[in-house]
Design a protein around this nucleic acid. Structure first.
Lengths: 227, 227
DNA sequence: AAGTAACCGTTACCTCAAGTAACACTTACC
DNA sequence: GGTAAGTGTTACTTGAGGTAACGGTTACTT
């Protein structure tokens, strides 16, 4: 097992994995502390939750906002792990829409506290430099814009509205999700279906207005001119 | 002008109007300070902007969050003054939608800094007890739900989805507005039209799916069974 | 075996902004 | 003249974020 080429100093590398693991551990502690004491916990609380005292925390995070970002990143992973597949899945357009919407709703349903914590962002005092929520929404909207643009172009339609529409759709699902999280007056499947219906009708209407009769069961890249 | 019935003590009443005016003055100062120094201004900055020192400010606002709420209330007024008429206006449905959307966009276009300040809420350190933004969104969504429900019922359709749809629409317009405020790549009229088109098509699709052929030029309470 | 680079962890401190105490002056009702 | 509201100030307290300074442990390096 002897290293043939000696690296700069093995002592520097020894902890690489450990540090990552420790950060993750503190992220978990933060989530736990928030669940226990509400979103306005202090660094002392987080440290206590992790069974450690404050300076230790500060060896792993430069800052309260650094810790917040780490938690946000964790949440982003949870979200993207679920949304990614739904976004790239192919198949009939109507079903894809429902799948994407439901993927999102399932994540916030399973992690409501984490979701609120990250989105409300009241954990950090000063405005944080990187707005993770905005970045996520942007990423999703950009992806949607591409899908939607492709879809429209497949009918030889103008895809100029794809970007604003994509952002509109993102906001739509998010806000409906927020409302639903607060007062859960219907099942998730029900809401997914309502939203997917709304979205499908909007898209269908766009096509109709261009004189195209689309079918919700059509695969994504449908009717592309075969010539 | 002598009072016949003597009130408890006129000295108590003497300032009633004055206090209101003073609060408004500090609200303005806050907006100015934010415009000048970014959203993370301190109370000292606000006081300085008003040409006064901190304790004076605290005679009129119990709290930083109290001041924030006052600014938010001011913003709500601006918004509702513009949206109220658009919401209650009657006329063809397609035009009403465009009017409502454009009313909203016009407000955020004219007060982008105030808008971001209130929505991001990074002025207050701890979570504030009253979420004005959520309340506004709720108010608008509730109104929309009523309008939409009435519209659907006028076709004898099930209006069960009206509430989630209303919240979805609110989020949709807000998020598209945020995107547009950031990178203004199109005119307001253009965006309004894109969004109104999307919304109209969604509604139209709902009606179609129930076998009803609607006309975007129809007045709001259309085709009610005349029998 | 000695040295050292990375971590473990602590208590006690610093800093900065929110918020308050205490004091002095002004106005106009009683 | 007394007093209830306001005007304003400087100087303080408080609390949470963040740091200094100290000592111990492990395991790589020489």
């Amino acid at each position: 097992m002897a290293r043939t080429v000696k690296g700069p100093d093995a002592r520097r590398e020894r902890w690489k994995g450990h540090r990552e693991q420790r950060r993750a551990e503190f992220v978990e502690a933060t989530i736990a502390a928030v669940a226990r004491k509400g979103p306005d916990v202090g660094m002392d609380d987080v440290a206590a939750e992790a069974g450690v005292s404050k300076p230790v925390l500060y060896r792993h995070f430069t800052d309260k906002s650094d810790l917040y970002l780490a938690v946000g990143q964790k949440a982003t992973e949870l979200l993207m792990d679920r949304m990614g597949p739904a976004l790239v899945a192919d198949g009939p357009i109507r079903g894809r829409i429902a799948g994407i919407v439901d993927a999102y709703l399932s994540v916030i349903e399973e992690n409501p506290n984490l979701y609120k914590f990250v989105v409300k962002g009241s954990f950090v005092d000063r405005p944080v430099e990187k707005d993770l929520v905005a970045e996520d929404k942007n990423l999703i909207a950009t992806t949607l814009a591409r899908i939607l643009g492709d879809y429209l172009r497949s009918f030889d339609m103008d895809s100029g509205g794809a970007e604003p529409w994509a952002h509109a759709l993102v906001g739509m699902v998010q806000n409906a999700g927020d409302w639903w999280l607060d007062r859960q007056t219907m099942s998730r499947a029900n809401l997914s279906d309502y939203l997917a219906t709304l979205i499908w009708h909007a898209i269908d209407g766009l096509l109709r207005s261009a004189g195209i009769q689309a079918d919700p069961g059509q695969p994504l890249t449908p009717l592309r001119l075969v010539d």
